[in-house]
Design a protein around this nucleic acid. Sequence first.
DNA 1: AGTCATATAAACATTG
DNA 2: ACAATGTTTATATGAC
Length: 568
Amino acid sequence: MMSPQMITPQQMQQILSPPQLQALLQQQQAIMLQQLQEYYKKQQEQLHLQLLTHQQAGKQQAKEQPLGNKQLAFQQQLLQMQQLQQQHLLNLQRQGLVSLQPGQGTVPLQTLPQAVCPSDLQQLWKEVTATQPVEDNIKQEGLDLTTNTSNSTSFSAAKVSPPISHHPLPNGQNAMLAQRRDSSSHEDTPGSHPLYGHGECKWPGCETLCEDLGQFVKHLNTEHALDDRSTAQCRVQMQVVQQLEIQLAKESERLQAMMAHLHMRPSEPKPFSQPLNLVSSATLSKSTSDTFPDGLPHPPTSATAPITPLRQGPSVISSSTLHSVGPIRRRNSEKFCTPISSELAQNHEFYKNADVRPPFTYASLIRQAILETPDRQLTLNEIYNWFTRMFAYFRRNTATWKNAVRHNLSLHKCFVRVENVKGAVWTVDELEYQKRRPPKMTGSPTLVKNMISGLSYGALNASYQAALAESNFPLLNSPTMINTSSTSGMLHVGHDDVSSTVEQVNSNGSNSPRLSPQQYSHQVHVKEEPTETEDDSRPVSLMATTNQNVTIPDERDLEEELPVEDLS
DNA sequence: AGTCATATAAACATTG
DNA sequence: ACAATGTTTATATGAC
């Protein structure tokens, strides 16, 4: 029908799985980031050096008035710049542009300016203002800046995350910073100077040869003193940094387009087995720790560990995503892929910001939305809001997908409408959901057998297990199927027998599938007042309140839940 | 080729 | 009357 060229970027994006997209993105970003960091490093070194120089000068002429003001202005500039850099780097990290894997992440990041750490700033200030105790309050202000400013040019990260200094960044960021602090001492080590290398001054555009450090310091004090020229150079540098940031943004955009284009060829069939933590580790760990739908072991505050999903075959989904070049409606997933919960958890940030259609069916998305809430019930409007909150893709064409959502809610028996004082909420009947999942092959031993045997081969195995995880199956206890615990998952996938069993046992055919919540595995007690106004305006952090002991229902959850539901 | 699950669109009903 | 919410029908598509 459509020539490939006619496919929209969104459609093309669907071809590559988020991990793939991110892998590519990350590569590009890493390169740019390195450049940026080099700039940063240089600037920091220069600024720091100059500051120190002036500090010395200030000590000598401690009583001279003009210096105070000038120095102050300079310091503020320095701070601003540091904040800029700091913010930017953090944003990058949060967006997953900087992977903070232990081995690799430290390499480029160690080149980060030492001032990234607020305590270093403090120290700097201390040094600088040592001779001017008057400035104490100002120093406070200056430091506060580091926690208040959000001049970020980037998007969600700043919005989502609290100020840097309070945010326990995962992936060892704190550790990194601390480590940074330690290593920052090299600046002060006598005999070396960041602005001095290979016998020449590294001040931008200077390159004056200096025999030794002493001479160099002298040179610094004379040639690069705190004057208008130096300040101007600083400003220029700041602009350079800003330009770089802008350029970075543009390059990112370009990269997106490139990838969108390349997605035309779903040539690479290999499913990623471990690609996922490309997602902004910071944001991800935050958001996922808010709601761990998958119930998998996540470090609560992964301070040091890069979020390395230990999960099985996280994004085997990509394999399925790959061959779905078709129209927008392609939904894939679900069947042989990662459970939505873990996929979502891992790519949460991705879907949130990238206008990519999530590879999940409406039904599974709706279910996910509902199950993520403590009460496991949502009004229609709340479901809408979850969609828009979680997926950039669903921030447009609202009429279409909202209709689809309503359609799905009505169509699938697994969604149960429960009347409420203030209206109605939707809940999920897990049993129905599980019944619905596999394409009906009920009672076909052959098919079941085929499926099971099919499962036994490599790659899919993991994903199946994962899929199982999603499709918790308390009812698997049915003796007909369970052979070994290790295979129970896979068995469940080829579970049609099971589901048919379930059907017979539990739902009595098709009698009044709806409005009989009492037969649900996890009963929902209907909220008295479905708060309607949260949603979009609700800060992400609010979600965190739901997850302390209310692990989002998936395998684990349901196992526990089955006997007695107690959510309160 | 037929069946099934899903996506999309739309008509229609109900409700506040 | 209107918008939001639900329900239902029709059609298209892809997977099996």
